[in-house]
């Protein structure tokens, strides 16, 4: 069953951008965007596109799950003989995305939401507090604790590699 959706909405372009941050390729970002679109239709219909906070949380959580389930690819498969090797920046981006996704998974839902909104969308603590219905003080606490946990987890992940 196919459903058309208002692709003119800015919300879906944002969903794709959030997804691309983590998936680091078009196909992964597209799959994630379709999944989020489907869930949004099931969840709240046409109006859900106005709830960017909800869309962002769903998108990031979906990408984290997808990266966790991703099967490791052998190095040989990444560089087929008839193509130029992938640029170094892409390889670093993919590895960094998986590591960051693994670290974000260790945060609470609220810590993750605050860190994502602050780091990637540059939202003020006041705006985050309003959208999440929390006090500004609580949002700042989530931010600091989230960063602290990420620092510890990323440090351990780097040691393990």
């Amino acid at each position: 069953m196919k459903r058309d959706i208002d692709l003119q909405s800015e919300a879906w372009a944002n969903v794709y951008r959030w997804a691309y941050r983590f998936m680091r390729n078009h196909d992964g970002a597209l799959d994630a965007t379709q999944e989020v679109m489907l869930r949004s239709v099931q969840h709240g219909g046409a109006n859900i596109k106005n709830d960017l906070g909800w869309l962002r949380r769903i998108t990031v959580n979906h990408c984290i799950d997808a990266l966790r389930k991703k099967r490791p690819v052998a190095v040989e498969e990444l560089e087929p003989p008839n193509r130029q090797p992938s640029p170094v920046s892409e390889a670093i981006g993919t590895e960094a995305a998986e590591m960051i996704a693994a670290a974000l998974e260790r945060l609470t839902e609220q810590q993750r939401a605050v860190v994502i909104a602050k780091t990637y969308d540059g939202e003020t603590f006041a705006k985050i507090a309003e959208s999440m219905n929390l006090s500004i003080g609580t949002v700042k606490t989530h931010y600091l604790r989230g960063l602290s946990t990420l620092r510890n987890v990323l440090g351990k992940l780097r040691e393990d590699r």
Partner: peptide, 22 residues
């Protein structure tokens, strides 16, 4: 470190999802 994860522009994203269907 978190900031390493950049993304594409809004215009590029809009172009990528054109024609998408659920």
């Amino acid at each position: 470190t978190l900031g390493q994860l950049d993304t594409i522009s809004h215009a590029d994203a809009a172009g990528q999802i054109r024609g998408l269907q659920i």
